[in-house]
Amino acid sequence: MDGEVTHRVSVRPLGADLDVLDGEDLFTAAARLGYRWPTVCGGKGTCRTCFVQVEEGVENCSPVGSLEREGIEALRRPVDGLTRLACRLLVEGPVTVTKRGVRRRVQE
């Protein structure tokens, strides 16, 4: 990752700190770093299983797009920037999120 810009995302309650590349969504970064993130659709933005609650750093999060807005509304949550889909969330600075069920992949 020499020379690449990364942004730190802390994932609670797991206690993991993920270095997300510029332009990379949180879901993809987690997979790249060896974490299993709850999903059904595999990061396509349709299942909404990957949603997170932003605890800190909402100002460092990308705007909510139309597909993500639909998903958040389907979850019956306000589209206020605090509930986000990890597969659509880009960050531009430190962010802390809460997501239960994130696990380190078991090495075989």
Rank of each mutant, 00 (worst) to 15 (best):
E70W: 00
E73R: 11
R48A: 11
W37F: 14
L85G: 10
G57K: 04
R12L: 14
T28W: 08
I72G: 06
G45C: 10
R105V: 06
L90P: 00
V20E: 09
C47I: 11
L21N: 04
A86E: 05
G42R: 15
R8N: 11
F51Y: 15
P13A: 05
L33F: 02
R8S: 12
Q53F: 02
E59W: 03
R104A: 10
S10E: 15
V58P: 00
V91G: 07
T46Q: 10
P63V: 08
T28G: 03
Y35P: 07
Y35D: 06
S62W: 08
V97S: 04
R77M: 14
G45D: 11
E55D: 09
Y35C: 07
T39I: 03
V97F: 02
A31I: 07
G23N: 12
V9N: 05
C50Y: 01
V40A: 15
V58H: 02
T49P: 03
R100T: 11
E92S: 11
C41S: 12
R76K: 14
V20G: 05
V52H: 05
V106P: 00
V54K: 03
K44E: 15
R76E: 14
K99V: 05
V52I: 15
V64W: 04
C61Q: 09
G71Q: 10
A30N: 07
R105Q: 09
P78S: 13
R84A: 08
L82E: 14
V11K: 07
D17P: 01
R88T: 07
K44V: 15
G93Q: 10
R104L: 11
L67N: 07
V20L: 10
S10R: 03
R100A: 15
W37L: 07
C41E: 12
K99E: 06
R100L: 07
K99W: 10
V40N: 09
E4Y: 02
V91A: 04
G57M: 05
L82H: 12
D17C: 09
V5N: 08
Q53K: 11
R105T: 04
L90K: 09
D25E: 13
D80Y: 11
L26Q: 06
P78R: 13
P63R: 09
L75C: 09
P13F: 04
G71A: 12
T98H: 13
C41P: 05
E59F: 00
P13S: 01
G34V: 01
K44S: 15
E55C: 01
G101M: 00
F51P: 04
L14E: 08
V58K: 14
